[in-house]
Nucleic acid binder design. Structure first.
Lengths: 369, 369
DNA sequence: TTGAAAGCGCTAACAG
DNA sequence: CTGTTAGCGCTTTCAA
């Protein structure tokens, strides 16, 4: 049926070993032999058999990415980065999209099947400790993105510092009654961003008022949705009508901010005059909305994650690496501090100027302030 | 190192053949033997080796999707459908994202490697005829989405009819000078939508004015971008200032419409009073923008494509199938025909009421009007 | 019902 | 430099 190296060997009048060597650019083949073999391969339009190669060489040239809600604007960008880099590096990318928490186990399990993939990228979720151990046992390379674990390469975003910078920005603009519209507190990013919000208030001697915090109880996309943002703003406005003169809000993601802005508009609440708003992510829409937000280098994170994974596949015994990105404040219209032109303008906030790429020994110690 | 069926065989005191039979639920094994083997498997936490299985059984349980610009809102939705269905069917999904035309060849080639995947889905692009032949030769299942070929299962969108309906809607609202902001004419959808636009004008005895057609020459995402939409509207407005009183426009995609609306707003051109706008796709944003648009069942297309592919993998000799979806007019605010509440309201246009799912013999004959 | 053995297509060591 | 050979881990006959 299909043409194998045996066919090529017969055709070129050599042994299969030689054929294999030619096909894999081994040095020890004479030029004429190589030419004959390669020619035969072309003539018979030979195609290597992926699984036979995989079985014999114990490498698959395939990696898996386990991503929650990859239709999220955030993950999309990250995924784009991964995909670009994967194509470049000659790796195939298996996409495992997680929409329900149970799927995580399943996909982790699958990834761990011997011979399926050479490495795994795991996104924005806590990896169950028993699986962490299995990855260690199987010595299967694993990179964590938007999450971290001392035993694996990790790429993190300083959600806490990001939220801190956002709220500090609002406070410096004169706001004292700053609310937060958050996503589901079941997620790490939401909790971390909340912490940053709390810290900022604290540092400025503003008492935390739990009534001004509006986490989402939506399950879909963990509350990182336009609808969750709408709901958050509805509750904020209700609170406001009840007498709490909230003047500013941090929203946990741009897509939520979009919904929030929408509801505000519908309620004839002016942004930023009545309520100043800062988002998180800097998705493409943010520019459209003139949304002040905390920029995350999503695409770059994807690329870096892929690079790390490839590096680890090649050198399994490197010491685990932790890279931390600090979100950057992008000032636009919705925070009330826009430049005259209203155009994109980046603040020079202290932390935001540098993207920290730090590598450090196995103890994985604090990069956070 | 890792545990194989030999280990299980030794452990359970049987031969490897029996182990294999147990693991694959073959009938001819006695209950006690099966129990012993399965127990051993559990105790040693046995994992099958994907590639060994693949090599021996000649099936991979993996499929590939070749998708251009998967960060597109349209493809995202489709991809979500595919991914959901793939997970359900137990197939792994290899994602081949195409950002440059050259990559198509490369990915097709890769997909054709024997033993890599059990089937391929190919999106929105013309498949080179020589590759079409190769798929036939290799008997590798192939499903075309948003494109078609007589020899393969195809899932199409009636772009032409969709655009036709959109423009007819505008004409019925009294517009005579209807423009079209299009994407790159290198793409099939753009050409088909243009054709629909032309047909609608024709049917109503309106002369086609080439000056009112604004295709994009952008390369990035084939012009299906916000920026391309901005550019299109800029040119439209220029034309308008030059004296052509255009009163309505069909835009080839919602994301372009978004940019177009933006530019209109900046230029203080009122939508829909000055220019009525209809988009194409019905992405989530369309609702936010109150954009009248042609809805495509993106998610459903993904699901269906996956179903088709699985069916074909199981029954390679079925006769090729063609399914056609007709986009549906969704009336919102930007066309000037909104209901009082301004809320989502679906028109009852003739064709739009039915989604045609037609299956027909190999001649693949016209579904189009 | 079960064990033994022959591949699946390729890589990599080992002789020559 | 090249041919031969022994696996890689599993499925699947074929006898027993």
């Amino acid at each position: 049926m299909s043409v194998t190296i045996y066919d090529l060997a017969r055709e070129a009048g050599v042994g299969i070993g030689t054929v294999s060597r030619c096909l894999n650019n081994h040095p020890n083949v004479s030029a004429p032999t190589r030419a004959r073999v390669l020619d035969a391969a072309r003539r018979l339009s030979y195609q290597p058999h992926a699984h036979a190669k995989g079985l014999a060489s114990q490498r698959t040239n395939t990696i898996a990415a386990i991503i929650p809600y990859f239709t999220n604007y955030f993950f999309q960008q990250v995924l784009q980065g991964i995909q670009d880099k994967a194509g470049e590096s000659g790796f195939d990318l298996i996409l495992y999209g997680v929409n329900h928490p149970e799927q995580v186990q399943h996909y982790l399990h699958r990834s761990l099947q011997r011979g399926r993939v050479d490495g795994v990228m795991f996104f924005s979720m806590r990896i169950p400790e028993n699986y962490a151990e299995k990855f260690q046992q199987m010595r299967l390379p694993l990179v964590l993105v938007d999450g971290s674990h001392p035993d694996f390469d990790s790429i993190r975003v300083e959600n806490r510092d990001g939220a801190f910078l956002a709220v500090r920005h609002l406070i410096r603009l004169g706001h004292r009654r700053v609310a937060m519209i958050n996503a589901s507190m079941d997620t790490l990013p939401a909790r971390e961003r909340y912490q940053g919000y709390v810290n900022a208030l604290e540092e400025h001697g503003i008492a935390l008022s739990p009534d001004r915090v509006f986490p989402s109880d939506a399950r879909w996309q963990d509350g990182f949705t336009r609808e969750a943002g709408r709901e958050g703003m509805r509750r904020l406005l209700a609170r406001r009508r009840a007498g709490d003169a909230i003047t500013a809000a941090l929203v946990a993601s741009d897509i939520q901010a979009m919904g929030a802005l929408e509801v505000a508009r519908e309620a004839h609440v002016r942004i930023p005059e009545d309520i100043a708003v800062v988002g998180f992510d800097d998705i493409e829409l943010a520019q459209y909305l003139q949304l002040t937000t905390m920029r995350q280098p999503m695409y770059e994170m994807g690329v870096l994650a892929m690079e790390r994974l490839v590096a680890r596949i090649r050198m399994p015994d490197m010491v685990p690496t932790l890279t931390t990105f600090v979100p950057e404040l992008v000032v636009r219209g919705t925070c009330g501090a826009a430049s005259p032109g209203g155009e994109l303008l980046r603040s020079a906030a202290t932390l935001s100027e540098q993207n920290l790429h730090r590598q450090h020994p196995a103890n994985h110690a604090g990069v956070t302030s």
